[in-house]
């Protein structure tokens, strides 16, 4: 080990790695116990929406955010602007 390295502060990248791993391992430990429900949940919500309006699969965005112990599931559905389309899908 060189002289300067001994004096210099250790590089911070290991701390970043630890923090990232803590977050991802905590999440995966939860996922392992629980069901992989996100795709199924999205399908169900889509099915409900489809009863009223016709929405393309690509116009549904599901994002998952984690802040500490909180999980935020955000579902963003872009409804078609065309009124006729809405009526035709309503039935």
């Amino acid at each position: 080990m060189s002289l300067l390295r001994r004096v210099r502060q250790p590089s911070a990248s290991a701390a970043v790695a630890k923090e990232r791993l803590q977050v991802i391992l905590a999440r995966e430990n939860v996922d392992r116990d629980g069901p992989d429900y996100l795709p199924a949940l999205r399908q169900d919500i889509l099915a409900v929406i489809a009863k009223y309006v016709h929405v393309d699969q690509d116009n549904i965005k599901v994002t998952l955010d984690r802040e500490g112990n909180r999980e935020i599931l955000e579902l963003n559905v872009t409804l078609p602007g065309d009124n006729k389309e809405r009526k035709s899908a309503r039935r």
Partner: peptide, 12 residues
């Protein structure tokens, strides 16, 4: 995902 730094953004 970890190497690319996008592990927190994985949904599907």
């Amino acid at each position: 995902d970890l190497i690319m730094g996008c592990e927190r953004r994985v949904v599907y």
